[in-house]
Design a protein around this nucleic acid. Structure first.
Lengths: 235, 235
DNA sequence: AGTTATTTGTGTCATAAAGACACTAAGTTG
DNA sequence: CAACTTAGTGTCTTTATGACACAAATAACT
C-alpha cells in the first residue's frame, strides 16, 4: 500500500527525479505549433525541450500549479486549457538516473502569447512538422507525438480546439483550426450541428467581416465544462 | 525547461513524496470490486488503501514496473490490463507533506486471484457500492471514483471488459460483465456486431453449456491491441 | 416422449448523428 | 452590376446502434 512508512525519511528511498513538463499547443498560420524552450544547461544543452521544471513544494499546491507556474514564466499568461497527458518514466530517459516526468497538455490562442514570445529568443513556437529535423532533448519528441495524438483524438469528439481561438470566434475559424489539428477537412454542417446541440456557446449580436457574407460570432459560455460527443467525426 | 540543473543534487530541491498506486478492478458475483489493502502503518493505520508503494530505482525500469511489482506482491499474478489513470498530487492529501501519486488502473479475472486472496486477511475485494461505508486512506475514495468513471467510459467504446473474463468466454458472459460495470443493460445484438466487426477475437470450436442452447466461445487473439469504436453504446 | 422454460443466435425495421452536396444569403471587388 | 467569396440552410444518404420479434438448441419437469 502506498506511503507506508511510519515516519517519512527522504533518505530512506532513492527518490526518482520528479519534474513537470507541458506540451503547449496553438494553431498559427494554419499550422499546429508547440512551444519549445532552448535549454541553457546540461544535459542536452542547446537542444530544444518542453517548458517545465521541478515542483516548488512551498509555493505550488498541486502539480497543476507547477505546470501553470512554469508556463507563465515562458509565456506570461495562463493557458486556456490544461489537462494531464501522461507520466513518462524510466531509468534510461535521463542520464542522471531514474526520472519521472508528469506531462501536461495545454492549449492557448496564438495571439495571446505572440507579442511576448517575440521579445525573447530562447522560447519559440515550433511547427509540429519540423520537429523531426530538430535536436530535441530527452524523449520529448515521443512525448510531443503522444500529445499530438491525444489532441487529434479529442478534436474528433469534443470542442477542445476552441481553446486555440480568441474569445469571439466564427464557425469558419473553428473549422479551420480543427482541420489543421486533425489534418483532414470536415463538414461545415456537422460542425454547426454540434455547436448548436451543445450548450457550451452563446451567440454574439454583432457579426464580423470574413471576405464574404458577415459571420456569426460565438463565445464559450462562462463556467461551462467541455462537452464530449457520443461519436467521432470521421470524414 | 525540465531537469535544468547542471549536476543534479537530491538536496537542492525539497522533493515531493512520490508513490505509485493501482486501482485493480474485477467483476465477481455480478458486482464491480476493487482490490484494497488494510494499512499496517501510519498514516491511516487500519484503514483500507490502494495497493502501491515507492519506486525501487534499482529494480524497476519504469513506473509500470513499480505498479506490476506491487500488484504481484498482493495478488501473486500480473493483471491482464494495465494503463495509467492519472496523477493525484498536492500539499494537503498526505499529512507528511507535498505528495504525488501516480495511479494505474488495472483489470483481472476474479478467479485468477481469488484462491490467493483467501489465504491472507489484509487484502480483499471490496464491492464498489460499499466504499462509502468504509474508512478509506488518503484521497483514495476519490481516486477509486475517478477510476470507476474511466472504466465505465471505456466499456462504452472499447472491449476492455474482456480483461475481467477468463481466456475463453461467451457473449453472455461479456454482456453480463459490461452490464455490471456500466450499471445498465445493453443489447446482445449490438455486442455481437462489435465482436464480429473487430478483429480482436477468434472463435473456439467447442461450445459450452449455459443453461440453454450451447454458447459459442471466444478468446482474445494473441498480440492484438484493444480496439476503440467510433461511437458509444447508449441504451 | 412431450411440454415448458431458458439461453443463444438471427433477421429486420427504426432511430440518431454524421456525410455529402446543392442551393440560398449577404457581403466584397473590379 | 457581374463575378467571386464566405456564411448558412435544406435535405437526402449513410452507418452504427436500438428495439424486438423469432428461431434454434438444450435442460428440467411431468
Amino acid at each position: 500500500m502506498s506511503e507506508m512508512t511510519n515516519s517519512y525519511d527522504i533518505n530512506e528511498f532513492k527518490n526518482p527525479i520528479f519534474t513537470v513538463d507541458s506540451v503547449l499547443f496553438t494553431v498559427k498560420d494554419d499550422a499546429l505549433k508547440v512551444l519549445m524552450v532552448k535549454r541553457a544547461n546540461e544535459p542536452f544543452i542547446g537542444n530544444w525541450g518542453l517548458p517545465g521544471g521541478f515542483v516548488d513544494v512551498d509555493s505550488d499546491t498541486t502539480t497543476d500549479g507547477t505546470a501553470l507556474r512554469k508556463l507563465e514564466e515562458k509565456t506570461s499568461v495562463a493557458p486556456q486549457y490544461l489537462e494531464q497527458l501522461q507520466v513518462f518514466s524510466g531509468n534510461a530517459r535521463d542520464p542522471r538516473g531514474f526520472s519521472v516526468t508528469l506531462v501536461y497538455f495545454a492549449l492557448i490562442p496564438a495571439q495571446e502569447v505572440s507579442s511576448h514570445i517575440d521579445t525573447v529568443d530562447d522560447v519559440q513556437w515550433i511547427d509540429i512538422k519540423n520537429i523531426n529535423s530538430l535536436s530535441i532533448a530527452f524523449d520529448h519528441k515521443v512525448i510531443i507525438d503522444q500529445a499530438k495524438e491525444r489532441l487529434q483524438q479529442k478534436a474528433l469528439y469534443s470542442m477542445v480546439p476552441v481553446y486555440c481561438l480568441p474569445e469571439y470566434f466564427t464557425v469558419g475559424q473553428l473549422k479551420s483550426v480543427i482541420e489543421t489539428i486533425i489534418g483532414k477537412t470536415i463538414q461545415r454542417k456537422s460542425l454547426i450541428r454540434r455547436i448548436e446541440s451543445t450548450d457550451m456557446f452563446e451567440t454574439i449580436d454583432e457579426k464580423v467581416k470574413s471576405g464574404g457574407r458577415l459571420a456569426q460570432q460565438y463565445k464559450v459560455k462562462a463556467g461551462v465544462d467541455i462537452v464530449n460527443f457520443e461519436r467521432n467525426l470521421s470524414s
